[in-house]
Amino acid sequence: MPLPAFIRALPAADIPVPEDLVTTNAMQSEDGLIVFFTIHKDMEIPPHSHGPQWGMVIEGRFELTMNGETRVCTAGDSYDIPAGVEHGAKLTAGTILMDVFAEHDRYALRR
């Protein structure tokens, strides 16, 4: 199920991933950033770290690796990534995620 039209109408986040792999829709305030990620092709996000992040799988599945431990997250699962914790992911085509970042400027928005 695609995201509702009002979410798809939100601006894109300026992420370093080609749009044929993933599209984004985001909302930003001075307190944080919410990004909806729609994955179009299987892809891998290499290990990295940043400020606190919380997310939820809306549809599909992906593998999340934190501190060397991997778990499979499916629709309805949430995950909490504390600040500075190294993490990476293997994302499956068709997956839709919602990530909330404490860093309001984690990604700029494309208007």
Score class of each variant (00 low, 15 high):
Gln53Asn: 00
Val100His: 13
Lys41Arg: 06
Val85Tyr: 06
Ile58Asn: 00
Val72Asp: 12
Glu63Thr: 14
Leu64Val: 11
Lys41Gln: 07
Ser49Cys: 12
Val57Leu: 08
Ile96Arg: 09
Gly84Cys: 05
Ala89Ser: 12
Ile45Glu: 05
Thr38Asn: 06
Cys73Ser: 12
Gln53Arg: 02
Asp42Tyr: 03
Arg71Ser: 09
Ser49Pro: 11
Ala93Trp: 00
Glu63Pro: 12
Phe37Asp: 01
Gly51Met: 11
Ile81Phe: 07
Ser49Trp: 15
Thr70Gly: 04
Glu69Lys: 14
Ala75Tyr: 10
Val100Arg: 13
Pro46Tyr: 02
Val72Ser: 09
Ser78Trp: 13
His87Phe: 04
Ile96Gly: 02
Pro82Ile: 04
Phe101Arg: 02
Asp99Met: 03
Arg71Asn: 10
Val72Thr: 14
Ala102Lys: 13
Ile58Trp: 15
Ala102Thr: 15
Gly60Lys: 11
Met43Phe: 14
Ala89Pro: 07
Asp77Cys: 13
Asp99Glu: 11
Ile58Val: 10
Glu86Asp: 13
His40Ala: 09
Ile96Lys: 01
Ser49Gln: 10
Phe62Gln: 10
Ala102Gly: 14
His40Asn: 08
Leu91Cys: 10
His40Leu: 11
Met43Ala: 14
Leu97Thr: 06
Val57Phe: 01
Pro52Trp: 09
Met98Ile: 08
Asn67Gly: 15
Phe36Ile: 06
Lys41Cys: 03
Ala75Gln: 10
Pro46Gly: 02
Glu59Leu: 14
Tyr79Ile: 07
Ala102Pro: 12
Gly84Ile: 06
Ile58Pro: 02
Asp99Ile: 06
Lys41Met: 03
Gly60Pro: 12
Gly84Leu: 04
Thr70Ala: 05
Leu91Glu: 11
Ile96Cys: 06
Asn67Val: 08
Asp99Gly: 05
Ile39Glu: 05
Thr38Ala: 07
Gly60Met: 08
Pro46Thr: 03
Met98Trp: 09
Gly51Arg: 10
Pro46Leu: 03
Thr74His: 13
Val100Asp: 11
Glu103His: 10
Glu59Ser: 15
Gly51Cys: 12
Asp99Thr: 05
Gly76Lys: 08
Ala89Leu: 07
Gly94Cys: 00
Glu59Asp: 14
Glu86Lys: 06
Gly76Val: 02
Pro82Ala: 03
Ile39Cys: 01
Glu69Asn: 14
Val85Ala: 03
Gly84Asp: 02
Pro46Asp: 00
Ile45Arg: 01
Gly68Gln: 10
Phe62Ser: 09
Phe101Pro: 01
Ile81Trp: 07
Asp77Tyr: 15
Asp80Arg: 09
Glu63Arg: 13
Trp54Thr: 15
Gly51Tyr: 00
Asp42Asn: 02
Met56Gln: 13
Thr92Gly: 08
Trp54Ile: 15
Asp77Phe: 15
Ala75Thr: 10
Glu103Tyr: 12
His87Cys: 04
Val35Gly: 03
Glu44Phe: 02
Tyr79Gly: 01
Pro46Asn: 07
Gly94Tyr: 01
Asp80His: 10
Leu91Gly: 06
Thr74Phe: 12
Leu91His: 01
Phe62Pro: 07
Asp99Gln: 02
Phe101Val: 01
Pro47Lys: 00
